[in-house]
Design a protein around this nucleic acid. Structure first.
Lengths: 338, 338
DNA sequence: CTGTTAGCGCTTTCAA
DNA sequence: TTGAAAGCGCTAACAG
């Protein structure tokens, strides 16, 4: 494996010192056009590829970043990852993709491995770590951006990008209220989920603003999946047939609700309105198409990445938190009027 | 940033040489229990984290791998990525995620950047590079596995994992034939797609085996998306209302077909049968649920990764190609009988 | 069981 | 404009 061509080889071939080769490669310092040409030729002839490893050791920058998500196979994070990678690529960085499988142990482990790899920064999505562990893990890196998770107090060099879930839930809830619904259920997703908690808050507050009393019985938790939504919806709709609208923690849950309604013979939207959250591609394709709250996911990733780059460059306004706004998308499952 | 604790710091703190520290960290060689304990304490006290970069330079292994896909946001590759990452994590590797956006230029660029990062190996999915460029790019890495792409002749150290698309298309086509369909259309996806070409082959050969003549007019290309499928299906069904079954290049295309059928007032499956390919989650959720061909995607990723690890370890049977078998999944859009 | 000596392949610093 | 020397932080290969 040591058959790799090194800088010294190129230098010898071109009859110069390695410093000159280095200068040519990095376009730094002054090198006469002729020497430059000779070096270029030598590089070409030998098929030389600089070693990023050696360079990293010398410069203390790796040009690599870490992206930590619960699960790339989840379309939400897949889109975020896409946004992150896109911006990183343009900036000349490579990104390590790490799944945590929602396991805090594993989250710590991958963060530690990224530290060993000496990444220049980390984008950490929906961290499940306790505040103190998170703070510790995150400050171990030169720079970090948290997505959909706040840390208080926010350590220096840590940025935050969050979706305004409260507003999103408010938009959807208000939409249902305006359509005349008063008996509204909400499948709230997993209790650990911070975004779920924020959505609940938006839901409750909006009900309260309309002088309705939020009923905890109508707000059961559920797994954030189609199956989870279906199961909880079946139970909820059986116990509370009076509901005229049902909100899902996310679109997958809402699709589960659609299935449950079909099984119970409740027509959507005439018998009951259904709405989701996230606006994944699926939302527009099920029938009836889902009313939901659009989250610009790759934009979320792109902005997180840009923020991280700014922090690495030392040009970030530290305390400034980036808030991404969701948008109501009205489709057939919950139209404007009952 | 140079405030990082180094091995020498630990060695000094523990009153030993760095070699001893190294031995403790890597659990290599013999170190007396007492010394080991002292070193461990020093590491703990100083919060020392070994530098993977320095280690890589010395050992010529980085413990990193590259995963190159057209687009992680595509659920197919997201699942593959998940499988890859899972196995890599267990083996102690970190993986660089690279999107190519179907752009050969960018594909070359990311492969080159991975080479600079000195990854120990690469998993390359659905490469769009010409054979010679691909061979060149791939042999630049210590090890590589191609997913859904063959290279002939296959360079040493290059593994191959392919989905048996021919068999998959055969299964679906035969299913339709057995159900009594004789006028079957096929939206074949983008002409560049190798898997698309293999699926076409399976389709044609099966028709031929049943002594039917494949009609090119019934096999138009289309974008591999819902919109692409819808548009082509509209055109095809208008031109050929006699079709009793329509096959999509993949599930997205098939969903587009479903939409087109709805628009044309053709009932599925009674007026026309529809089938897809891949079995993405969406397939089971649309109505009617899609008959399709299941591809075990994360298994595909996992097996590619295992193969890569085997190659890195030098224990791969070189020429052995791994073939992943798809499975027919019968749902309501194309039932067993007309 | 532990330490010494040389690098790994590049860049930084200073000098020429 | 170019080069020499001295690391970056670690491990391989020997000694002891």
């Amino acid at each position: 494996m040591s058959d790799r061509v090194t800088m010294a080889d190129v230098a010898r071939e071109a009859g110069v010192s390695s410093m000159t080769v280095s200068r040519v490669i990095n376009n730094k310092g002054h090198v006469s056009p002729e020497t430059r040409a000779r070096v270029r030729e030598a590089i070409e002839r030998l098929g030389y590829r600089p070693s990023g490893i050696a360079r990293s050791l010398a410069t203390r920058r790796t040009g690599t970043l870490g992206l930590v998500v619960p699960d790339v196979a989840n379309p939400f994070f897949a889109d975020v990852a896409r946004g992150v990678e896109q911006v990183a690529y343009q900036a000349g960085y490579n990104v390590f993709l790490c799944n945590t499988e929602e396991d805090p142990q594993r989250e710590r482990a991958v963060l530690a491995s990224l530290e060993e790899k000496r990444v220049d920064g980390v984008v950490l999505c929906s961290s499940r770590l306790e505040d103190d562990l998170l703070a510790e893990a995150v400050t171990a890196h030169p720079a970090a951006v948290l997505v959909n998770r706040r840390l208080d107090p926010q350590p220096a060099g840590v940025g935050t990008v969050v979706v305004d879930d409260v507003t999103g839930a408010t938009l959807v809830t208000r939409h249902l209220l305006k359509a005349g619904h008063r008996a509204i259920g909400f499948l709230t997703g997993p209790p650990i989920s911070r975004s779920g908690r924020r959505r609940v808050r938006g839901f409750r507050d909006t009900l309260a603003a309309w002088e309705l009393t939020p009923d905890p019985d109508l707000m059961p938790a559920c797994a954030p999946t189609v199956a989870g939504g279906r199961a909880e919806a079946l139970a909820l709709l059986r116990a509370h047939p009076e509901l005229t609208a049902l909100l899902g923690y996310n679109d997958l849950v809402a699709v589960g609700v659609l299935q449950a309604c079909a099984e119970l013979g409740r027509d959507v939207p005439d018998g009951i309105a259904v709405a989701g959250f996230d606006d994944i591609p699926l939302a527009a394709l099920v029938s009836p198409p889902l009313t939901t709250c659009h989250i610009p996911r790759d934009d979320l990733g792109a902005r997180a990445m840009r923020r991280l780059l700014a922090q690495i460059a030392g040009e970030a306004e530290d305390s400034q938190e980036i808030v991404v706004q969701p948008e109501l998308v009205i489709r057939a499952s919950a139209p404007k009027t009952r």
